[in-house]
Amino acid sequence: MNVLKRSALIFIFSSMMGVPAVYAEDEVASLPTIRLMAESELREEVGIVPYQEDKNVRQALQHHLYKVNLDMQNQEVSESVGGLNYQPQAAQPDLSYVPAILQQYILAVANGFQSSDPTNGVFKMLEPLNINRDNAIDFQNGTMKVDLSDLLKLQQQIRDGLNPPPSPLFPR
């Protein structure tokens, strides 16, 4: 009972003294926090910041560009002589003395060799022997047969191309 009397006495004494009470005001300060925002939200929050030109930065940039340009123009040439590879342009062949049919054949073979697939030129050369891409595999296997008359015909065409018949306008 003694304890009850003491606690009642302390309660009455403390109520008379006035226990400080905490009251919240209407405006509560909020602590800064980090939030993730999309660019559009950030623009709404901050607004558009106008461009402000800094003259010192601009002058430093101009100075740097001027220095780079001067360095490019005043590039030193090394005194060591390096090798200079020069390949003269190849002379164009003169096919004026070759008959027109043989000229066309030579140019077709040359174009075939200069194409992206050089085997076109090889097959153009082998065309009079009836060798093409389809039967070239047989030739590699050793089962290809070439007609002797085709060989003789090709030989005669080459002979006729190199030795054209005499022209009545230009006798030999």
Rank of each mutant, 00 (worst) to 15 (best):
R172Y: 01
V3R: 10
Q155D: 15
R43D: 06
S15R: 03
A90D: 03
K55L: 06
Q62W: 12
Q89P: 06
E25R: 08
E53L: 08
E39I: 04
N2G: 02
E79K: 13
S78Y: 04
Y86F: 15
F123P: 12
L9Y: 07
N130M: 08
Y23F: 13
I137K: 00
D147A: 14
Y66G: 07
G82S: 02
S30W: 08
A100P: 00
F11C: 04
A38Y: 11
D54S: 13
L65F: 09
S40E: 13
Y105A: 03
S78L: 00
G161M: 07
L151F: 15
K5T: 09
D138L: 01
A90Y: 13
S116G: 02
D150A: 10
G121C: 05
L107K: 06
A24Q: 05
E27I: 11
Q89I: 14
I48Q: 02
E25D: 08
A8F: 00
I137N: 01
E53C: 02
L84E: 01
N130Q: 15
V3A: 09
V22T: 10
N132I: 05
V68R: 05
P166Y: 00
Q114P: 02
F139K: 12
S15W: 00
L42D: 02
D117Y: 11
A90M: 13
V98F: 12
V3E: 09
D150F: 08
P165F: 02
E44H: 12
Q140A: 07
G161Y: 08
K145P: 01
N111P: 04
V81I: 15
E27T: 07
N85C: 09
L151C: 14
G82F: 01
A38I: 12
R172L: 05
S78M: 00
M72E: 04
V98I: 14
Q155E: 14
K67I: 10
V19W: 03
P32N: 03
A29V: 03
Y86T: 15
F139T: 07
G112E: 08
G112H: 00
D94G: 13
K67Q: 14
N69C: 10
N132G: 14
Q52E: 01
M144C: 10
Q140N: 04
P88R: 11
F11D: 04
L65M: 13
S115T: 00
P165D: 02
D147L: 10
T33Y: 10
V77N: 05
D117G: 08
S78K: 05
N111I: 01
I34V: 15
Q140C: 05
V22F: 09
